[in-house]
Nucleic acid binder design. Structure first.
Length: 563
RNA sequence: GGGCGUGUGGCCUAGUCAGGAUAUGGCACUUGCCUCCUAAGCAAGUGGUCGAGGGUUCGAAUCCCUCCACGCCCGCCA
């Protein structure tokens, strides 16, 4: 249910009708959003050229005289624009009623569309997550939550690499250096052996060849060995999952790469690729020429020893995913772009119909440079979370020293984790991020606590109000109308995210509703309003709480009732 | 060398896909506002050649070209 929809349709119908009636122009007018000036606007400049009339004249004629009202939309013209706005009073009533009726599900406005599958995080389980990898998880989890809120049938997956070279190195390192159960969080503990193994392999050719040998045995389907490397991967993965859950990132399913080898699907894909007319060999290694015959555009899908490569196995995984969902989204670092181009091209050559969207993101770096699990360089997610919670707790205690410890800690967790997630998700995925503690732990201005605070304020009013009921809310004040209009925008924001994968827009939106609510809160009394206005205003506060709370939940950020 | 991406006040950033009406917020800085539903807030102010230069257009942060800076990729690694 999108409160804007009937108004958008009315505006479109009005513009189309007037265009036809006055100028005989038959077109579906593409309406733009007019910012603060109008909800929908039709610029008349293009038409001015073909009609050889002034745009001002046309706009004014289309408006049929300034200030005319056509049913549910207000029509006017200015400077060559035909401006149409949803009657703000009607829109406000409708938006507030819709939000209150739908509650947690407010935001839903799409039906059907089939099953959808988002793959995200999927980091190699060789060590603890650093804040760079976390960006992927936050984007993917926010996307999943947002599309689900929009009404789509979506589930999320983590593709666990448990047979690739890096995990083999981990396995090799654990076997060699691990002394029984060492306690501690497994990802933090075991990564030491992984780092040490990498150093050893670099200087010892014998070790390097052991690694290659293990990889070959895995590929041949050595069940016992697969079970062992998988176990190594799972140990580290347990720690990673703990970290993910600490920031509210969840996956519906974990798919292990080794399963695709065991069930033969990798082998079948290799056979199908070899059978393609353009498949060729170079020194025993198979490849597909993807862009003419240039050597740099060859997609090698086997090594000369016959073993498959990462992208080959990823083709098998994508075919598996496509058998389970009509639409896929992959959330990946920008370094994967070329590989994914090969993957998509390969699926096409195999005649696999697909619908895959990619959400690529740039990296998070430190002021001193790149992060690397292998070299043990980077800011770890667990450290960021701990620091965020600690700092948030100090803030909570300084503001509300009387609060019981448990409650203070719960608020601090919501604020701290929210701040971390928000500061990553608020940025366009294409922008590189330089991690700075003071930004990641920002609690004011454009931040999670800002949004959470407005939610808590709304909750505070509602809890003081007690029982109330307002079947037909009405609004007239500027602040009320602006706030209600912002609430009405939520479903279209989610549809936009579903179409563009631009998850940062959820954050931008949350910031905007919260800002609007804070202004309303200062200027417009609710509980001390005139008797006749209290019901409508409580309904507006309640609708605000719903819109803000749902937006926060889309970002995996808790919406505390009190702060 | 080739490809992909990014460049918006001192700093971070929205807007770029679908060109349009005074370029969005925040941080920092200056100044007001807590006998009033939580000041993690609100109001006001200082600060901009939208990387540079061409072009298209009635109109360009937005589209096209050239250049510059930065990130990423160009493995029989993942």
């Amino acid at each position: 249910m999108d409160p804007y929809r009937p108004f958008r349709e009315a505006a479109s119908a009005y513009a189309a009708g007037m265009l036809k009636q006055l100028y005989g122009v038959e077109e579906e007018p593409r309406l733009e959003t007019g910012g603060d000036i109008a909800d929908f606007t039709y610029p008349c400049f293009r038409l001015a050229k073909t009609l050889r009339k002034s745009p001002l004249e046309i706009a004014s004629a289309l408006a049929g005289g300034a200030g005319s009202v056509s049913g549910t939309i207000a029509v006017s013209s200015k400077g060559g624009y035909l401006n149409m706005s949803a009657d703000p009073v009607k829109l406000a009533s409708s938006a507030v009623a819709t939000a209150n009726r739908m509650g947690d599900s407010y935001g839903k406005s799409v039906e059907g569309g089939g099953r959808m599958l988002v793959e995200h995080t999927s980091i190699n389980p060789t060590g603890p997550m650093h804040i760079g990898r976390t960006r992927n998880a936050i984007l993917g989890d926010t996307l999943t939550r947002s599309l689900r809120q929009a009404g789509m049938d979506i589930s999320s997956e983590y593709y666990v690499n448990d047979v690739g070279r890096q995990v083999v190195v981990l396995y090799w390192g654990l076997k060699r250096y691990m002394a029984g159960d060492e306690g501690g969080k497994p990802d933090h503990e075991l990564v030491r052996h992984y780092i040490r193994a990498n150093q050893e392999i670099e200087k010892d050719e014998g070790a390097a060849s052991e690694i290659r040998d293990i990889q070959q045995r895995l590929e041949r389907g050595d069940a016992a060995l697969i079970a062992e490397t998988r176990k190594a991967a799972e140990m580290v993965l347990a720690g990673i999952r703990e970290s993910l859950e600490s920031i509210n990132v969840f996956h519906d399913r974990f798919v292990f790469e080794s399963e695709l080898i065991k069930d033969g699907s990798v082998r079948r894909v290799v056979e199908r690729l070899k059978a393609l007319p353009s498949a060729a060999q170079e020194g025993g290694a198979w490849y597909l020429p993807l862009d003419g015959d240039r050597e740099e555009d060859r997609f090698y899908f086997t090594r000369s020893d016959g073993t498959s490569l990462y992208t080959t196995r990823d083709v098998a995984y994508h075919m598996d995913k496509l058998s389970r969902a009509g639409r896929l989204v992959d959330v990946l670092g920008e370094d994967q772009k070329l590989g994914m181009k090969y993957l998509v091209r390969t699926l096409e050559m195999l005649g696999e119909s697909h619908r895959i969207d990619f959400l690529f993101h740039s990296f998070v770096s430190l002021e001193e440079g790149k992060m690397s699990t292998r070299q043990g360089v980077g800011v770890l997610l667990d450290d960021v979370v701990r620091e965020a919670k600690e700092r948030a707790l100090r803030e909570v205690l300084s503001r509300r020293p009387e609060l019981p410890g448990e409650e203070a800690e719960a608020i601090a967790a919501a604020v701290g984790i929210g701040a971390v997630r928000y500061n990553i998700v608020r940025l366009q995925a294409e922008k590189k991020i330089i991690f700075r503690w003071e930004e990641a732990l920002n609690f004011e201005g454009s931040s999670a606590p800002f949004v959470q605070y407005s939610h808590a304020r709304a909750c505070s009013i509602l809890s003081r109000a007690g029982e109330w009921n307002c079947p037909e809310p009405t609004y007239e004040e500027e602040n009320e109308l602006r706030l209600a209009r912002q609430i009405a925008l939520f479903p279209s924001v989610l549809r936009d995210v579903a179409g563009s994968m631009a998850v940062h827009r959820v954050a931008t939106y949350a910031q905007q509703v919260a800002a609007e609510f804070n202004q309303f809160y200062r200027v417009v009394p609710v509980l001390k309003a005139p008797e006749s206005r209290i019901g409508s205003r409580l309904a507006l506060v309640s609708a605000s709480k719903i819109a803000i709370g749902n937006a926060l939940r889309c970002m995996g950020i808790a919406a505390p009732e009190s702060m």
